[in-house]
Amino acid sequence: MKLLLISNSTNAGEQYLAYPLDAIDRFLGAVRDVAFVPYAAVTFSYDAYESKVQQRLGERGIRVRSVHREADPAEAIRRADAVCVGGGNTFALVRKMQEQGLVEAIREKIEAGTPYLGWSAGSNVACPTICTTNDMPILEPRSFGAIGAVPFQINPHYLDANPEGHAGETREQRILEYIEANPDRWVVGLREGCMLRYEEGRLELAGKRPARIFRKGEPVREVEPGGDMQFLMQYK
């Protein structure tokens, strides 16, 4: 497998997909054609999403073709040299992917070694389920089941702080609820500006900030950038 799972598309004060662009370019290597899944977009069109991603990745000579333009999106995935899934609303994304048979098609491509990259919701759907998304369930998918490329859950945009004046649960409290109900599952709190890269049988944290790791019965731990996170791949 080859995976690049990015927490967020844009850091504060930066341009869209600016911070992960070098990592995306290196990850894809000689692959210059990408099948793009835009279905997490809700308040803007799939055409606009494709254009926005193409504008940025095109700076490195990468051609983006959105599957929404295809008569058979699943077949477009099966033909793809690489698969890219953009962020937005995870529930809208997985519902459309389930309707079009993309969950299975992408899983098969990943297992065959096709590079997969995603950010935010695109990272969520690489997990066994979408249960650790931050998004509002604006649409109801057939199930919470996702691609399952990795055996753990990701919480993108992980925040440590509780906003001043807010008396609700912190992100950590939400995740602690999840692992209480799902004691066999690890969760990676992936802070903004960070990404998980899986290549040549090794899972590594990239970026400038540590990731926060949760599992019921285990002490919450921090893994620094560059740290080996291969232990997360050992739990099915």
Results as ranks from 00 to 15, higher is better:
C127L: 11
D184L: 05
A167K: 15
A112C: 01
Q153E: 14
R142V: 04
L176T: 10
E172C: 07
I138N: 01
I154V: 15
R191C: 04
E111C: 02
I154G: 04
S143R: 05
G148D: 09
T133Q: 05
I179C: 00
F152A: 07
Q100T: 04
C127V: 05
M97C: 03
P137Q: 05
E104M: 00
E172S: 10
P128Y: 12
E169G: 00
G189P: 12
Q98I: 04
I175R: 02
R95T: 02
C131D: 15
Y198S: 02
C131R: 15
L196A: 09
T133E: 09
A149N: 12
M195E: 09
A126W: 13
P183G: 09
Q98G: 00
E108S: 05
Y116T: 10
G101K: 01
R191D: 01
G165F: 01
A146Y: 12
V103L: 09
E108P: 08
E99R: 03
Y158V: 06
A161E: 15
P163V: 07
L117H: 11
E140Y: 05
T129R: 10
L190D: 11
I147H: 02
S120L: 07
Q100E: 13
R191Y: 05
K109Y: 02
E104V: 09
G148Q: 13
R197Y: 06
V188N: 10
A112M: 08
T170I: 06
P115E: 00
S120R: 13
A161Y: 12
A181D: 12
R107M: 01
E180M: 02
V125A: 01
F144T: 15
E200N: 11
D184N: 12
N182E: 13
G201Y: 06
G193Q: 11
N182L: 04
A112N: 08
Y116P: 08
I179L: 03
P115M: 00
D184S: 14
H157G: 04
Y158G: 07
V125F: 02
I175G: 03
R171M: 10
Q98D: 05
P141Y: 10
E111T: 07
D135T: 14
D160R: 10
V150K: 03
Q153F: 13
L159C: 11
N162S: 07
D160A: 03
A126T: 10
N155Y: 04
Q100G: 04
I130Y: 03
E169L: 10
G113Y: 08
W186H: 15
L159I: 12
G201L: 07
S143K: 10
P163F: 06
I147G: 00
M195H: 03
R142G: 13
T114A: 01
V125N: 05
P156F: 08
P156T: 14
N182P: 07
P141W: 09
D184T: 15
I179W: 04
E140S: 08
E104P: 01
Y158L: 10
R185T: 15
N134L: 10
H166L: 06
Q100V: 02
R191F: 03
R142C: 00
E111R: 14
G148K: 15
G118H: 11
V188W: 09
W186D: 14
T129M: 08
G201Q: 13
T133H: 04
G145A: 13
A146L: 06
Q173I: 08
